[in-house]
Every structure is written in structure tokens, then in C-alpha cells.
Design a protein around this nucleic acid. Structure first.
Lengths: 342, 342
DNA sequence: TTGTATGCGTTATCAG
DNA sequence: CTGATAACGCATACAA
């Protein structure tokens, strides 16, 4: 029933002004201890809950942070969220998560909604698949503070917290080349409009160049970040004549790798004998697979933590400089690359 | 720089009143087509973004829905979120997710923050671990509409969307009894203050009763919903003298089962020969385990969808009656219960 | 210490 | 079709 108790209601009930109630409830110094006590008590008994909507309209600050995630069912992101929460929990900021479902259009909608709600800042991992930066440029010109994480939009002057995607990709590819002496290597890439898609692809290419391995265009397939896209891409490779097939498959992330592994299994091939496969993420499933997946471990929790810290600093200090923060990955060598069981 | 374009700014720039601008931008009928066009164009060029905070203050409606999740890294919940999104995406409502991290105190904070933001409704899966319902009673008396999902708080008159926890738990337990002729069965339970903890436990007990199997108190251990608690609880069972140990372990959910499985492995025992294990959830990992996990498949996506639909109806129709909606589970028979490979 | 006036950005209402 | 005014709930600035 209690249809919205306001300061005014409390004031009337007590025969004081709304202003005094406001002061008492906000613990301002200039209010009599006795009346303050009375007011606080009355407020509780009436079930008063401050209207942040009104508060925000006055203060132009909402103490909320929005988070834009590309794909909530990709286990990497929930783990990032836990890192973000370690920082925001106990701080004054409340978190609002949104999921873009890998669609840039949804991401824009989410960001617009967040802006309309006047969140103080937004943490974004972008699903961008277009070349047009105007949307982000406008965003960065607004009062809303922005920090990108993992999938960053670069060169716009915003801070970015990510992992060393490029060198990690080089490193895991080189593992195949040097430890397993494999030269026929395929790459299932992510979209090139997304930073991590681009960086990991470049890292892969760099490994080939470094070892003078020529690139076979048939073996570089733009797959995507999901199981299904890895599955489809792998089937394209399997459709090649046997003598034209690669010996190993490097993938943009673990879901993609897991899709590829399924395709390989369904085609009757085995891992790592017929195809070595490596991933990127260290998904919860990676070590549980029948042939555990060699992959790059991304410190998701740490990424979230650093991103949240940077955003709050950016919100609270006008002159906080933008910066790129790279958290380092570690290689997880398991069996899918051909390494024997430890 | 563009520090917050308002209706007034646009009005001044065009020499009309703020009211006319408001009407034009909201596509109201009573405004000249010519002026409307001019206004819409000017608004875009000035980068106008409506201030929902102010809008909400007037309309007392925010077109936002809050979601309270107990544990974002438990894969069941992200999948529920996808179901919720299928409904809200394309509707007028924007979603704000919060994570309670299995702590009731955090859940209360999240709900309070959501209420202060004046969300129109909240979808809650409760982390409640106390017997005090006053917090929820107050919540349900406020203007905020509430629908519980999965972990419901019952008998408060709010709608609830869940699965048939009790009978599913009976069914999977009976599978062990009738198909595998196992009588020495242990139960790793969830907290009894949480609905699903309670219901699944009762379902388990019902199966024993039905088959006249006496309960061994040493075998019923309050574990919890996470890997770690399953791991610890299983170690307690393993500490019993060999002749006092059960032959099978029924668990409250898959994470708990996975923890127990790890403890069993570390102790040098094997599944299902030494211990049969069954779960509840059908986590992504369930079928990937070395011994694939027999479990109850929960239609998470469907739960989310139904809950979101019910909430929106409840928000939009004052007289929408509360109801309990049960979505049915299916049994996933794999090898961890002793069933041979198909 | 307390109260009054005023404004945040938007919309409902009523007048023109 | 358009405009002026008041109101939403709260806090700042100033006055008493």
C-alpha cells in the first residue's frame, strides 16, 4: 500500500519543513540532535526510501555504473563481472549489466539506455562489427565516462584494459611450430572489426612470418566467437581435399575451438593425431574435454578488477589520464596440441 | 564537451517552446508536420538524448526491469538471462542485472538500489538464508512488482516461475534405487532456507520413503550450491569408515556434484564403481566430465522467458493475478549413475 | 538551527 | 496547433 513516502510526508507528520528532514536523513551537521533522532525514526517507521530519480536530477550523478557484455553465456565474461564486482561492492556504485548478444545494434541500444538512465560511467566490451566510429565518438564526447575492456575500440582516447592478445596468439602458434614441428597451420579467426579478432589474427600471422611459413589463404577462415561458427568453419576445412588440409588449427577463442573439435569428431578424425587444435580463453570446459584443450589462459577476474578501478578513478577525478592496461596471459599446455599427458 | 542538450536548448535554438519540442520528439499528434520535422532534425544535429531521469520523475515509470541473480558464474543463470532477454529485447523495457554472489545481504542491497532507481519490476532468484521474511514483505507492499524465478520465496503472494524440483529429485533418486538397485544413498543438500534446497531435499526423502529405505543421518549433509561445498561435503563422507559409506551420492546441483566428483577422484575412488553420483541442473560441463554426469536437465531459457513475460504482465495490468508456473525438467541419463554407454 | 525560494528536465493541463 | 504554468522529489543558496 505505502504509496511512496516522500520527505514532505515525513515533514508534515512531524510538523517540520521538508528541508530539515532532508538534512537529518543525510546526516548534515546543522540539525538538532533531538529532531534528527525523531526524524530518522519516523522515516524508518514510515518505510521511507529515498527517490534516487529525484536525487539524480538535482545532483546530476546517479552512482551507477553500466556494463556492456557481448555474450553473457561465454564463461569469460561472468568471470570478468566477478572482478568488477570485487571493486564496486563496498564502493558507492551500483552495477547494471547489459548483454549485447554479439550484436552491435543491441550494444548501441544498451548504451543509449544506460546513458538515458544517466549512469556515471560505462564499462564496454564491444561487439562492434562496423567501421563507423561515430557512435563511440559521440559517446566519448558526452558526460558519461567510458572504459573499454577485452574488446576495445582503439584510438578514440578512452582507457582500455585487455590482455596481451597479439603476443599470446604468437606464442601459442609458435608452440605448434617449434615444439610439434607443424607447418601446415590453419586459423579460425574472429571478426576483424573487433579488436581481439584483429590482434589475435595478427599475432598468428606474425608467428608464421617469423618462421618463414607461407600463408595459405584457404586456411584462414573468418569464423566468429561462438561454438557454431567454429563448427561451420572447421567443416569448410574438412571439405578440402585430404592433401590440402592443415595439420593444426589455431582458433580465436575456446568456444570456437570447441565447435571445431565437435566437427572434427563428427567427421571421424581424432585429436591431436589428425588435427592439433588450440584455443584462447581457458574456458571452464577446456580441461574437461575428452582431449583437454591447449589454450591461452586469460585472467578474466583481474581484467574486470582493473577496468572497474580505472573507471571509478575516471569518474571521480576530472583529469585522470586515459591509459591502456595490459594484463598478461599464461599458456595452458594440455593434450590437444599433441603434448603427451604430464 | 556537448554538456547535455535539453529540450530547452532545442526550443531556444528554434524559437519555439520547450513543450512543442517535447511533443514533436514524442510523436504526439497535435503538432504541425513542418515544425515537427524541423525539431526532429535539430534534435539529432544537436545530439539530444532524452533524460530518462527527469522523464521518470514525472511519469513515475522508468521502463526498466531489475534482475537479481544469486551466482552469475553458475551457468544456469546466464542461460536464464538469455530467456529473459528474448522477452525484453524488442519490448520497451531495459534490463539491469545484479549479482548477489550467494549472499542475502548483497541481495538486499541490490534490491534496495534497484528500488531507489525506481525500476518498474524485479525478477528475483533469492539467496535468502534467513528465516526473516519482513524484507520481502515490505518489498511486496511497495509499488515495485516482483516475480521470483527458480529460487522462490513462497507464501508471500508473489508469482513464481520454477521447475518441478521436488518430483525431479524424487525421480532421479528413484532411478538409482530401481534401475541400479542401490539402497545406500547419501544426499548433499543445499541450504534449507532456499526453496530449491528444501524442495529437492524433500523429493529425495520421498523417494527413500516410497521404497522403505531408512534414512541414515550421517549421509545427509548440508553442502551448498557450489563446487567447493560439494567437495568439502564429499570429504566428510569419505572420512567415514569404509563399511559406513554410501554407494551413491545425490546432490542438490551440478556444481556441488562436480565438487564431490573431484573429492572422489582425489581419494582414489572411481565413478560409478565406488560411488554413483547424480546432479541437478545439466551444467555445460555435465556431459564433458570424464564420466559424464547423470543429472536433471533444467530448461533455464524457458524459465527466464516465462518469468519475464509474467513480470511484464504484472507491471502493465494492475489486476494480474499471482501464479506459480512450473516448467518441467527432463532426466539426462549418462554414465555417472552406473548406466553403460549408450 | 530552521525555513523559503528556486531549479534540475520533463510532461500534464489548461489557455490561447 | 502552440504556449505558459505547475508539478514530480530532492538539494542548493540564502534568509531568518
Amino acid at each position: 500500500m505505502s504509496s511512496e513516502v516522500t520527505l514532505k510526508h515525513i515533514a508534515e507528520a512531524l510538523g517540520v519543513s521538508a528541508m530539515t528532514v532532508s538534512r537529518a536523513l543525510n546526516d548534515r551537521p546543522n540539525v538538532d540532535e533531538q529532531t534528527k533522532k525523531k526524524i530518522v525514526e519516523k522515516a524508518r517507521s514510515m518505510g521511507y526510501r529515498p527517490n534516487h530519480v529525484a536525487k539524480s536530477l538535482v545532483s546530476n550523478k546517479t552512482y551507477t555504473i553500466g556494463v556492456v557484455i557481448p555474450e553473457i553465456t561465454h564463461a569469460f565474461f561472468p568471470e570478468v563481472v566477478r572482478g568488477i564486482e570485487e571493486v564496486t561492492y563496498g564502493s558507492d556504485y551500483q552495477l547494471f549489466l547489459t548483454n549485447a548478444n554479439e550484436q552491435f545494434s543491441r550494444e548501441m541500444e544498451a548504451i543509449r539506455a544506460l546513458q538515458s538512465q544517466r549512469v556515471d560511467g560505462i564499462l564496454i566490451s564491444s561487439s562492434q562489427t562496423v567501421e563507423d566510429f561515430s557512435f563511440y565518438e559521440e559517446l566519448l564526447n558526452s558526460r558519461t565516462k567510458v572504459v573499454f575492456f577485452d574488446r576495445c575500440v582503439e584510438n578514440l582516447g578512452a582507457s582500455c584494459v585487455s590482455v596481451n592478445d597479439r603476443s599470446s596468439s604468437t606464442r601459442i602458434t609458435e608452440h605448434l611450430i617449434t615444439t610439434h614441428n607443424i607447418k601446415k597451420i590453419s586459423y579460425l579467426s574472429g571478426p576483424q572489426e573487433v579488436s581481439v579478432g584483429r590482434k589475435r589474427y595478427r599475432g598468428f600471422m606474425e608467428a608464421l612470418e617469423k618462421h618463414n611459413i607461407p600463408v595459405n589463404d584457404d586456411w584462414v577462415i573468418e569464423a566468429g566467437f561462438r561454438e557454431k561458427s567454429g563448427y561451420n568453419a572447421m567443416n569448410k576445412l574438412l571439405a578440402l581435399p585430404p592433401e590440402d588440409r592443415p595439420e593444426a588449427v589455431v582458433t580465436v577463442n575456446d568456444p570456437c575451438a570447441i565447435g571445431a573439435i565437435q566437427a572434427i569428431g563428427e567427421a571421424g578424425f581424432s585429436i591431436p593425431d589428425d588435427f592439433a587444435v588450440v584455443g584462447f580463453t581457458d574456458d571452464v570446459r577446456a580441461e574437461l574435454l575428452k582431449v583437454p584443450l591447449t589454450t591461452v589462459h586469460q585472467p578474466a577476474y583481474e581484467v574486470g578488477k582493473r577496468a572497474a578501478q580505472k573507471l571509478i578513478k575516471t569518474i571521480e577525478h576530472e583529469e585522470e589520464p586515459a591509459e591502456n592496461i595490459e594484463v598478461l596471459t599464461t599458456l595452458k599446455i594440455r593434450e590437444s596440441c599433441g603434448c603427451g599427458e604430464e
